[in-house]
Simulated scan of single mutants.
Amino acid sequence: MQKASNSPKIESARGIAALMVSHCAGMLDLVALPLWVGTLVAYYRLNPQQAGTLPTLFLIGASLSSVFFASRFNRMNAKWAAVMGFAMAALAFTLCFGQTTMTVLAPLHFVGGLAAGSALSFTHGTIGGALNPHRVFAWAGLAIGVFGIIFLGGTPGVLARFGGATLFAIFAAVMGLAAVMGLLFFPRPSQQGEDDRHESDTRAQPLSRAVWYSIGAIALLAMTQAMTLSFYERIGMERGFGRELVTLALVIYGVVTLLPAPLAGLLEKRIKATTVISVVPVMQAVCAMIVTHTGSYAWFAASGALMAFTILFTHTFAFGLLARLDTSGRAVAATPAMLMVGAAIAPFLGGTLVKFIGFGAIGYAAIALVAMELLLFNLTRVAVRSESPLEQTQAV
């Protein structure tokens, strides 16, 4: 637990800014996957399965470190854990620059994932200690939207001019910025969050059924998103839309990511969290099928953007729900593991489907994943209703 008295509070402008940058760096894959995989195919001449393997290794590393550190969130200094994690991730991506072989890139991606996942765990655990975690996480989601526009709008041109290796320099710069911001402004938990986590840690209560159902569902939410997004750029190029229109679709994707988190923040008291998580993910299956089967550019661009809206809107409500169901901070500190264990499987799974069947297989796989996702989210809704009157009034 962070002790530094000179650190700003979460609700301060400096504290929120540091958490927003940290969230963007830790969730880099949410924005970067299409260019990540596309660059490895186009510039490094890897096949889809190989190209999917490298982000998968990064995400596996992030998942493993998040699982390890989430249960230790209250025993460590959150600020220094985040700073060191992002600094190590920056170093790993810096070492990737100029390398072209899988034997070198693979272990560096895995180490980078271990480092970034640990940093993101302490970032999300700290957000869970806010007076209103839902609202702070909505601010972090807005930051992802701004970052997405800048990254997806500017990176393709930079890569075209300076080469594919520049992608790793950009990744390193993002991680480095998060380390510096964390060093300067990483906040301490709000008093209420500190007291709640201390009390929960003392009692060491096991996580409830509702929390475990949500953990599984969020992993599937991330898997469906990452599986489709990983090959979004390649699908567009394969359909003959051309570099300029595919880049425009990625910019539209980035612009749309600005909307869901603020909207989720505004609707926090107007829509039940369990209603959102039990219904909205249906859009993932619909959009994944359209992206992988349509020959229309308009439908392709719109469906990709709506997939981004779906995961960000749903996850903001799911994060707020988890923070209320588990006040120890362990569940929200494990958010990177939930997201990345699903996302880790996705690029390799998607690449394998594309290699042996074709892009259309991704859409059908998305339907199966969303069906399981909806089952678990609806089990969460039922479990929350049955657990306690307090949870019913606050979380449902």
Rank of each mutant, 00 (worst) to 15 (best):
S5L: 15
N6R: 14
S7E: 11
P8Y: 04
K9N: 08
I10R: 09
A13C: 06
G15M: 05
I16R: 15
A17S: 04
A18C: 01
L19P: 13
A32C: 13
V37N: 08
L40G: 02
L40C: 03
V41Q: 00
P48V: 05
T56H: 06
T56A: 13
S63G: 12
S66K: 08
F69I: 14
A81F: 05
C96Y: 01
C96T: 04
F97M: 04
T103G: 07
H109T: 11
G112F: 02
G112L: 03
G113V: 05
A115G: 08
A116Q: 04
A119R: 10
T126P: 12
G128H: 00
G128Q: 00
N132T: 15
P133H: 06
R135V: 14
A140F: 07
G141E: 02
G145R: 05
F147P: 10
I150D: 05
G153T: 11
F162Y: 15
G163K: 03
G163E: 05
G164A: 12
A165W: 08
V174G: 03
V174M: 05
G182Q: 00
L184S: 12
F185M: 12
F186D: 13
P189C: 06
G193S: 06
G193R: 01
D195H: 07
A204G: 08
L207W: 06
I215H: 14
I215W: 13
I215C: 15
A217S: 04
I218G: 12
I218P: 07
I218V: 15
M223S: 08
T224M: 02
M227R: 05
M227L: 10
L229S: 02
E233S: 15
G240V: 06
F241C: 11
R243M: 14
V246W: 02
L250A: 12
I252L: 00
V256W: 02
L258F: 11
P260L: 03
P262G: 13
L263G: 07
A264K: 10
L266R: 14
L267W: 02
K269H: 09
I271K: 09
K272A: 14
V279R: 05
V279C: 06
V279T: 14
V282Q: 04
M283H: 08
V286H: 06
C287P: 05
T294A: 07
T294C: 04
A308L: 06
F309Y: 04
T310E: 01
I311M: 05
T316P: 06
F317K: 07
F317N: 09
A318F: 02
A318L: 02
A318R: 02
F319I: 13
F319P: 09
L322C: 15
L325S: 02
D326E: 12
D326G: 10
T327K: 14
A334K: 00
T335A: 11
P336G: 10
P336A: 11
M338F: 09
L339T: 08
L349I: 11
T352D: 13
A365I: 10
V370H: 00
V370P: 00
M372A: 13
L375P: 00
F377S: 01
F377P: 00
L379D: 11
V384W: 01
R385K: 15
E387N: 14
P389N: 02
L390H: 15
